[in-house]
Design a protein around this nucleic acid. Structure first.
Lengths: 226, 226
DNA sequence: ATTTGGTTTGACCATTTGGTCAAATTTTGA
DNA sequence: TCAAAATTTGACCAAATGGTCAAACCAAAT
């Protein structure tokens, strides 16, 4: 059982991101307490990065003790692995799901962008976290390749069909993924830089983001129009 | 004077990125030893992030002692600030420089993309580092705004001219910056994810990157064609 | 009620880490 | 040449941090 209580005043704020909604205990092999700790770790790791995360803070965040965190996950390394794995699988699942949209290619593009933007909204730090991990720890790349099954063929088929129908000009799965992910995920990571550059206040940024799904969709389709 | 010697076997490898070429002691107010340490710190911070960086490693990297590092920079925080400041100013300088290209808008776009890609090649971790810093430490955003003078007006003028000439459809400085930076910088940050996704080996990735300047340039111009 | 197994806790430990300091060394300027 | 200033160094420190452990606790089964 799990009788942890939220004792950390920061918890409510961090809880804004509804981790539990997506990472549901009932669908995994973890028990309640384990998921509770994993969710807390998720928030802390995403915010501070692996090396910046503190076991004590994770325990506080989960409303339990450091010892309990160790009881369930043995070490910080294993906990970090578990968090990374789940974050990656979650991202991948969303990517794949939005790829399965039927109909004109435009719908696929819009679905993919919308899905990415939604993810950013749910977990503002997710994209940045995965990129940073992948960037700073080379061994994570191998881990990633093992964790997410490549979907080159599926993308290739999708693209081939659209190309065949004359909806877009030829492109490769890697190029397609790169362009799409760039346009939809990068803004969340680079918000600070772009806003400083363009002298944009919060409202201005929000306005741009609100329009981003349509902008990127139209942008990509125009760029790839035959 | 500076009589530090490179005693760290890792140093040569890290030296691959020619920091000294760009961050030249003669052009700044720092003296030789100070720049030497700053360069070492630059390499370590970029690779491991602020919280992952170790003062001892920086000292090793610079071929000196931890005490000397403290002598010049007082604390890790100040050193981190100095590194961040320089990294940001460097990025900004490159961005600005490539914005000053005269001639058709296509040249501006190509110059900007090429400049960004070149930066990535020189400093593979620079973009990721800045984004991570800006992301994980909110106070950095204010710092950034203070460090780099906004260039909204310049971009706006450049865009207005191109729009006037009918080269591109209307867009805002923020949108332009976001789209351009996304397409050119994101790939370096997301390499791991995209490669896992598309099952791409190193050669495949290199090939795509080699073509990226032209791809992005053409891609952007098609997307924004009137 | 008692045992048994999993869970929780707080005290405690070893190491790491940022940082200090005074002494030693080198450089500079008179 | 010599004293003063700047720099370099290694020993040392206090706090932070990941981790351990035995005792306490608790729910369920006997």
């Amino acid at each position: 059982m799990c009788n942890f209580t939220q004792i950390n005043p920061l918890a409510d704020h961090l809880m804004e991101a509804p981790v539990a909604t997506l990472f549901d205990a009932s669908t995994s092999t973890y028990d309640e307490a384990e998921v509770h700790i994993l969710n807390a770790a998720h928030r802390v790791f995403l915010r501070h990065g692996t090396s910046g995360a503190r076991m004590q803070q994770i325990a506080n965040e989960a409303g339990t003790t450091k010892s309990s965190v160790h009881y369930y996950f043995r070490s910080k390394d294993r906990l970090a692995d578990a968090v990374f794995k789940r974050a990656l699988e979650e991202s991948y699942a969303r990517f794949r799901a939005s790829l399965n949209v039927e109909g004109p290619f435009e719908d696929t593009v819009r679905g993919l962008v919308a899905s990415n933007m939604e993810m950013i909204k749910d977990y503002p730090y997710l994209a940045g976290y995965i990129m940073t991990e992948l960037h700073q720890q080379p061994e994570r790349a191998h881990q990633a390749a093992a964790l997410i099954p490549g979907c080159r063929e599926e993308i290739e088929a999708k693209l081939a069909a659209a190309i065949e129908r004359g909806e877009i000009r030829p492109t490769t799965p890697a190029e397609f993924s790169t362009d799409m992910l760039s346009l939809s995920l990068f803004p969340s990571i680079a918000e600070g830089f772009v806003r400083a550059l363009a002298g944009l206040d919060e409202d201005g940024w929000e306005a741009m983001m609100a329009d981003r799904v349509e902008h990127v969709t139209a942008f990509y389709l125009r760029a790839m129009r035959v």
